[in-house]
């Protein structure tokens, strides 16, 4: 066995990436449909489905909060990881800078959305 091996920290990012990939595959298309097509065009769904009071109530519910946080945060971790690796593949040798921008923005967005969701109260 080789000596001087250093354990990679990739599992942290890879797990978030994996979770985000699964979550976005499950919910991404239907969310695009609901928020981008059905609600604006008033198709299929009762009117006011995404009205402010309803959305506020959703965001004040414990499970609703979790769902919103997961959608924002995991989607971003997924995207950050993909972009970071794609940069590497097209020859932009993503050093610390690219790492900070990609994962950093996912991290900041996670913290910001968690704070905002908490401040909305229960």
């Amino acid at each position: 066995m080789k000596s001087g091996l250093k354990r990679s920290n990739a599992p942290i990012f890879w797990s978030l990436f994996g979770a985000g990939g699964m979550f976005s595959a499950l919910f991404g298309p239907v969310l695009v449909f609901i928020t981008g097509i059905a609600v604006p065009l008033s198709l299929m769904l009762p009117s006011g489905t995404m009205s402010y009071p309803k959305m506020l109530a959703f965001a004040q519910n414990f499970i609703g909060k979790g769902f919103i946080l997961a959608v924002i945060s995991l989607f971003l971790w997924f995207a950050a990881h993909r972009i970071f690796h794609s940069l590497h593949e097209i020859g932009i040798h993503a050093g610390l800078g690219a790492k900070l921008i990609c994962y950093g923005s996912a991290f900041v967005a996670t913290v910001v959305s968690a704070v905002v969701l908490l401040r909305l109260g229960f």
């Binding site: 066995m1 080789k2 091996l5 250093k6 354990r7 990679s8 599992p11």
Partner: peptide, 17 residues
């Protein structure tokens, strides 16, 4: 478990995209 050291290392599986 012994081989895991290499699998989990920076030279290991996580290079794969």
């Amino acid at each position: 478990a012994e081989r895991m050291e290499l699998v989990a290392a920076e030279e290991g599986v996580f290079n794969c995209s």
